[in-house]
Amino acid sequence: MTNFKSFMANLPARIVLLAYSVIVLYPLFWTVTASFKTTTEFYKNPWALPKALHWGNYINAFNKANIGAYFLNSVFVTAAALAISTTLAFMAAYVIARYDFPVFQWIRKLYMVALFFPVAFKIVPLFLLLNQIHLLDSLWGLVIVYAASSIPFTVFLMTGFLGSISKEYEEAAMMDGCSRFGILFRIIAPMARAGLVTVIVFNFMSYWNEYIMALSFISTESKRTLTLGLAYLMEVQRYATDWGALFAGLVIVMVPTMVLYALLQKQITSGLNVGGLKG
């Protein structure tokens, strides 16, 4: 009897939650099915499922819309920016967390304030700066501005993680004659693995999904990143109406983040509590 009672008590909540689940999931399901539809199927009935898996859209996305090249550009920019921002921010955060000299505490405060800079505000001056140093319309230029833009956040998050590691390990390693850099990369880095994974995941998402800077700084077609290519594809398809390829493109962008989310779901959602808000 108590089982039934609690079932009934939970019923209203359950209905609301299920309804919202449909609102979240159906558009995603619709995107995936639409990516397998032929153009005629697409126009006929938006609710119907495709008769067969029409892989042609994916082939079109790669051949005609050049999605493959955009994919590689995104991989390159994301990987290079991750390598730079993670390494530099990790080293800086270690010093800020461990050494109590005023100058490093000032740097920490500077990064804290910078967390509140609106991205949009610096697009125009960045554009001019990149133009002056000949890094406009260059993937390396994009790498550098991506890495720079996430320094404050990454240092902020890493400082919290590193502060919680006991100092005894370093002292012991120091006795054994390990160099300071040796300690940093061979002892601290493996111990801070959870923190590193969290910042890497966060920054991966923001680089992989970034649009405003790519739009502003990249003009050559072959240098487009995935999100940029997709946005252009959308504009082109308004006239060409090859919607299938566009949906295939959407799925191609979604898959890496989906996989990462499935694997690291816990880290992503628990990083939220440690990172942004309790600080």
Binding site: A92, A114, A147
Partner: peptide, 23 residues
């Protein structure tokens, strides 16, 4: 200490703070 903090700081000053002020 400076090898650890300076690279990040330079990147930040040139590509975050400077554009902000220049704007």
């Amino acid at each position: 200490l400076w090898t650890c903090t300076l690279p990040a700081l330079v990147l930040f000053l040139v590509f975050d703070l400077y554009p902000f002020v220049r704007a």
